[in-house]
Design a binder for these strands. Structure first.
Lengths: 156, 156
DNA sequence: ATTTTATTCGCATAATTTTGCAAAAACACA
DNA sequence: TGTGTTTTTGCAAAATTATGCGAATAAAAT
């Protein structure tokens, strides 16, 4: 189908605006919007979107979007944070990763990154609102993204 | 049993230091440490710890600890952040919540909290490394924790 | 100490999620 | 358009996770 892109978009909107506790629930919400798929497809969609299922204090569960999502912009893909945290975006240039933060946050966040002691990262250099991450040779962009996802949103 | 506390502690250590993709895996890791329980218990433990199952880019899954975990300490529960983010802990006194941050972060974070415009929070007052949160009457500690969880880590 | 109350946990099962496979749909392009 | 390739999806089954219930254990109360 050609509505996969659209469906993924709608799913993120739904998850952003409501508490969804199961794929069956999501299925219902989607069909209200005339998007009919099976639960199996949702499982795959959520995996693609890296949506996590997390317990709430009220004893129920909720699907939550990851902190980093890939946005497809005119000039290639671009990873921006869906949260309102201090980290605004992550992009790559060759082997290097560039993290943009709110003004003043860069060095503190770079400290967090360094402090995680991840073997994948050789070091970081921070300005005021920009951090340059120097990954170890052979480390992929995806590995860095996973790492940041985990560093910035949920815990390791 | 009396080793629940210990078991929860060990679980957090394991999840912090390795990639666990299923409860069965966790079961094995625990039994290596002489902690024998059933998967049912793990499901409950993970729910208690608010551990989320999240997809990784390599196509597998991983259980991740939340940024705020309730630590079961002798003098009652106490909520500290497991992440290396700027927020270090949240504790309550009566109706008020006190957030400790890394030095210098308090006002920036208080701004984030205010800016979320949550109806549950009347206002905040920030010093250098401490924020006082004044919740609206009738708002529970758990509600505040949920809110902070969402504010500091994952998206809403 | 005995009874009552609350917690923890295993068992079995229910509920939910993931995935292999094959078919359908979309795409590429000669 | 026809043919080969890739992507998407449903189906059904496998795998995984969640939970009702009762037994066991611990804690509290009298």
């Amino acid at each position: 189908m050609k509505n996969k892109r659209n469906r993924l978009q709608v799913i993120t909107e739904i998850l952003r605006s409501s508490v969804v506790g199961s794929q069956e629930d999501l299925l219902r919400l989607l069909s209200e919007r005339k998007l009919n798929v099976t639960q199996a497809t949702l499982s795959r969609d959520l995996k693609l979107l890296k949506v996590a299922k997390t317990p709430l204090t009220n004893g129920t569960y909720k699907y939550v979007l990851p902190s980093i999502t890939k946005t497809i912009s005119p000039q290639g893909t671009y990873n921006h944070l869906t949260s309102h945290g201090a980290v605004l975006s992550i992009e790559f240039s060759g082997q290097l990763a560039v993290v943009k933060t709110k003004p003043g946050y860069a060095s503190a966040i770079a400290w967090d990154i360094d402090n995680k002691g991840s073997i994948e990262i050789l070091g970081t250099i921070a300005g005021d609102d920009t951090i340059l991450i120097i990954p170890r040779e052979g480390v992929s962009r995806d590995q860095i993204l996973d790492l940041m996802d985990v560093t910035f949103s949920e815990e390791k």
